[in-house]
Design a protein around this nucleic acid. Structure first.
Length: 509
RNA sequence: GCCAAGGUGGCAGAGUUCGGUCAGACGCAGCGGCCUGCAGAGCCGCCCAACGCCGGUUCAAAUCCGGCCCUUGGCUCCA
């Protein structure tokens, strides 16, 4: 079985092929605001793609850009005292992005190139396009002539004539054709552009943003060249996979193809993968609409595992809705996975490794899970189905552990450990499946809750166990009211207690 | 107006590439049972039930073709 993906270029599901090395370019974001859960959705899916390719034995070279030159950034200059220029604003939000990425447990890309550090490469690319006749200079700006590139529109199925017809015919325009787009913009950011994007009126002085010297005079890179220049610089002329949000298909990605292929004569990207949008209240989550939830806030409230489980609840190419209900569902799904994992680990730890119990049902379930998971992932990264396979395994594990516990109890064994009929190997395989498939591929962090904080957690555990001893005494004496009081008190400070036939268990919420 | 994606049960969301093995994946919510002092977790069962509408092709269509309606995204910065 090999991976197949939906390629926007052809609109079809295609078998993925590549050499040992996969060149993956992900369209990152403009650092003009806090990253929100819509951005994180793309990051997540790019991350899982990266992980899955690695699982399949590819060496993944993953590059993700940071756009730190943009009028939206310029528009925020002055909002804070430290923001004296475009670079200050960009620096603040770039730091936010990296922190969010760390929090989301994303595999690091090989490099996160910034526009501000690639202006020479951008200028070089624009020069090449001018020389080749695909672009022209006009009043110090440079535009790409879409009529010179016959394949323009092939990604998004746009018709150049149709686009031309839409454009306002403006005699005074610097552009030859209405659909032409800027590669290089003369001077700094215009006042109107800043005013359009500015959230607050901040003083009389209008920031112009950074400018760089070029053969056409002082100016700034256009909106789409950055990705062409940076991807070529770091990965070469032909990418294996180019991934981005669906809202970028036109014009951004269409223009990238035009620039890159006109300049190199080579295919720019072999597979175009587009991630569906995250909606909230029926609209796409967006900074400009204001219906967003920032990544740091969401991580704080839900935690990385719930968030990742949420994203894994829908295929990358579908839209996904963020509502109280869908979040609650993700919480339940994650809890179920993590509880079962903990339970399996506890069972493995308690068993006598020499025991030779085998449980065919359990082992078959593990094998089936692995097979189904791989099939689902290869099938255009069907994460919902892959997660479903893991959830199926929780049934088998719980059934097995339940059965053994019940049997131990029936025998009245006080030395349950030695007698237990756990399938040691089967459970180990199950634990490994959770760690490999759920952990390595989906990026979930099993069993990490207690390991994170170290010493403090240990102390907390001892204290909780102390209280639980008291509660057990109360229960043995039949003082259930007292026992419930203690349980409620623990719950109030974030410790959930659950009784089982082998004594109480607890977890920190 | 043009381009694109999509419309499947109370919710959410697979399945559409290659028509039958698929109608009821996985999950959530709800209901019942087992277990339990209670609760929770877990297990078992139920949820009497959905493929936007209208045609067509076919022995057979959620899946292919045509038309229509609706939603979302894009056509301006946007993951």
């Amino acid at each position: 079985m090999t991976l197949s993906v939906t390629n926007t270029l052809t609109g079809d599901r295609e078998e993925f092929s590549a050499d040992d090395e996969v060149l993956l370019y992900v369209c990152g974001l403009t650092v003009s605001d806090d990253p929100h859960l819509g951005h994180a959705r793309l990051w997540f899916h790019a991350d899982v793609l990266h992980r899955w390719l690695a699982y399949r034995g590819y060496d993944v070279r993953h590059v993700e850009n940071v756009t730190d030159v943009n009028e939206k950034i310029t528009a925020r200059v002055g909002e804070r005292e430290a923001w004296t220029g475009e670079a200050d604003v960009a620096e603040t939000f770039t730091a936010e992005v990296f922190e969010s990425m760390r929090g989301l447990n994303l595999l690091r890309a090989e490099v996160y190139p910034r526009v501000s550090e690639h202006v020479p490469e951008i200028v070089e690319l624009v020069e090449r396009l001018v020389e080749a006749g695909y672009a022209y200079e006009s009043n110090g700006s440079v535009y790409f002539d879409v009529t010179e590139f016959p394949e323009y529109g092939k990604l998004s199925n746009q018709d150049v004539e149709e686009l031309e017809a839409q454009g306002e015919p403006d005699e005074r325009s610097e552009k030859r054709n209405p659909a032409d787009f800027a590669l290089w913009k003369a001077d700094g950011v215009s006042e109107t552009a800043v005013r359009e994007h500015a959230k607050h009126d901040h003083g009389a002085e209008t920031p112009k943003g950074q400018t760089w010297d070029s053969p056409w005079g002082e100016g700034r890179p256009g909106w789409h060249v950055e990705c062409s220049a940076m991807s070529t610089t770091h990965l070469g002329e032909t990418l294996d996979i180019h991934m981005g949000g669906r809202d970028l298909v036109f014009p951004h990605h269409e223009n990238e193809i035009a620039q890159s292929e006109a300049a190199s004569g080579e295919t720019f990207a072999r597979y175009w993968l587009h991630c569906g949008l995250l909606s909230m209240e029926g609209e796409k989550m967006s900074s400009s609409i204001g219906n967003f939830w920032t990544v740091p806030d969401a991580l704080e409230e839900l935690g990385v595992n719930v968030l990742r489980t949420f994203y894994a609840g829908a295929a990358y190419r579908s839209e996904q809705a963020l509502t109280d209900e869908t979040v609650a569902e993700a919480e339940e799904r994650w809890d179920r996975l993590s509880r079962t994992y903990d339970r399996a680990v506890a069972a493995v730890d308690s068993v006598d490794a020499r025991a030779k119990v085998t449980d065919e049902d359990l082992r078959e379930a593990v094998a089936a899970t692995r097979e189904e998971f791989e099939r689902a992932m290869d099938d255009d990264l069907n994460l919902r189905e892959a997660t479903a396979a893991l959830l199926d395994l929780t049934d088998a594990v719980n059934r097995h552990v339940d059965a053994v516990e019940t049997a131990d109890e029936a025998e009245g064994a006080d030395d349950a450990d030695a007698l237990s009929g756990y399938d040691y190997r089967g459970l180990r395989e199950a634990v490994e499946a959770f760690e490999k498939l759920g952990g390595d591929v989906l990026g979930l962090q099993f069993g990490a809750a207690g390991a994170e904080a170290g010493g403090e957690v240990e102390l907390a555990e001892e204290l909780v166990e102390l209280v639980l001893d008291l509660r057990e005494s109360a229960r043995e004496a039949g003082e259930y009211e007292r026992a419930d009081e203690l349980r409620d008190a623990l719950e109030a400070v974030g410790v959930t207690v659950e009784d089982s036939s082998e004594g109480p268990t607890y977890r920190f919420e």
